[in-house]
Design a protein around this nucleic acid. Structure first.
Lengths: 193, 193
DNA sequence: TCCAACTTAACGAACGTTCGTCAGTTAGCA
DNA sequence: TGCTAACTGACGAACGTTCGTTAAGTTGGA
């Protein structure tokens, strides 16, 4: 299917150059087409962009939810650390994730609200699943804290700091150091002394 | 000085629309000039951009170093939390910081290496100051850990997660919750039980 | 089976607009 | 008189988009 080839090329250029920096002629050339031919598959640049965006959202959401649905142990140390590695793996191998990250951080101005809603939606779903897990662990007295929201937000913070490291330089050594540092301090912060 | 007015307008548009999305005509109009007149002050778009970038780097570096030079107590709880609030304050009030963040995360492709060097430079300086502080606190036995690097990187991680929250939505309530959560878990993670 | 009607994908050409940049000129001030 | 900063005018290039036109493939009824 040619539409998918176009979306793949679009994904690549949007990720590298951003919305404004990516041109339809470059994208078309990548798949051996003239830019006009894109209009046989998409209404325009915005339409192409938003379809890629929805694919990215779907990829982000499903892979995260899939991890938590599969994992159901009573071992938060293993599950949470595994999630961090999942995020690293996703980001390094899946261009959709890099695209999603860039466009949610700095969306094209005229699509700001539209994208903001998608972000809020996904954010809320992931956080509620996570919070449920933490509540279970608190009830089972395997981690400390009275309310689940605190460790949930703190863990999301650890994920954030890893993402920043991935975006910033993607130096394998630095990433490993930061992951270990953030994780060990976080874990000490939520587990029984 | 008109050059500064131009740089201020450029800062604004680069921050909102990115390098490619910001146009010289918009910037010029903002200060009541024609776009061609910008060339009386700057060699071109890149020159203008790089001058703003260096201003931003200077602002980022000096404000952070200034904080740590001023603060010299034996109270890491106060000093570190104060630093987090400084970052929040800087980001919310100083557009240079938002510009710096956007451009270091997702630099224009043709200036990637140039910007990467500036980032590495500033990163190294801030981290070494921070690491020195943590070493002092470890020696004074006011926090745990054997090596200073671990709490340093973890603290940088907390800063990162706050920055992400600021970029993402900038909802005052959410920000406060996340700050408290990240901070309390971090602090429990590095202090004596 | 065959042909006409329709659909699809891609094209060249051109649209109007904006982009960044350069050259030459004018107004004001030291 | 120079110098500077602003102007006007124009440049080639690229942008996203629309148009009309092909060529190939699909469908449906006689």
């Amino acid at each position: 299917m040619k539409s998918n080839e176009i979306k793949e090329a679009a994904l690549k250029y949007f990720t590298i150059h951003g919305y404004e920096g990516a041109s339809l002629s470059q994208i078309a050339e990548e798949v051996g087409l003239k830019k006009q031919s894109i209009y046989a598959h998409f209404k325009g640049k915005d339409d192409l962009f938003l379809q890629v965006l929805r694919d990215a959202k779907e990829a982000e959401l499903s892979s995260k939810l899939h991890y938590f649905s599969k994992v159901d142990s009573q071992n938060p140390e293993k599950d949470l650390y595994g999630f961090l590695q999942l995020v690293i793996d996703l980001f390094q191998k899946n261009e959709l994730l890099r695209f999603w990250l860039r466009m949610t951080f700095f969306p094209p101005a005229h699509l700001r609200n539209e994208i903001g809603e998608e972000v809020a939606d996904i954010e809320e779903k992931v956080q509620s699943v996570l919070e449920g897990k933490f509540q279970d662990w608190i009830d089972a007295k395997v981690i400390v804290h009275d309310i689940a929201k605190t460790p949930t937000l703190a863990f999301v913070g650890v994920v954030d700091s890893i993402l920043i490291e991935l975006v910033y330089v993607n130096d394998e050594k630095r990433l490993k150091d930061k992951l270990e540092a953030c994780w060990s301090v976080f874990w000490r912060g939520i587990s029984h002394s």
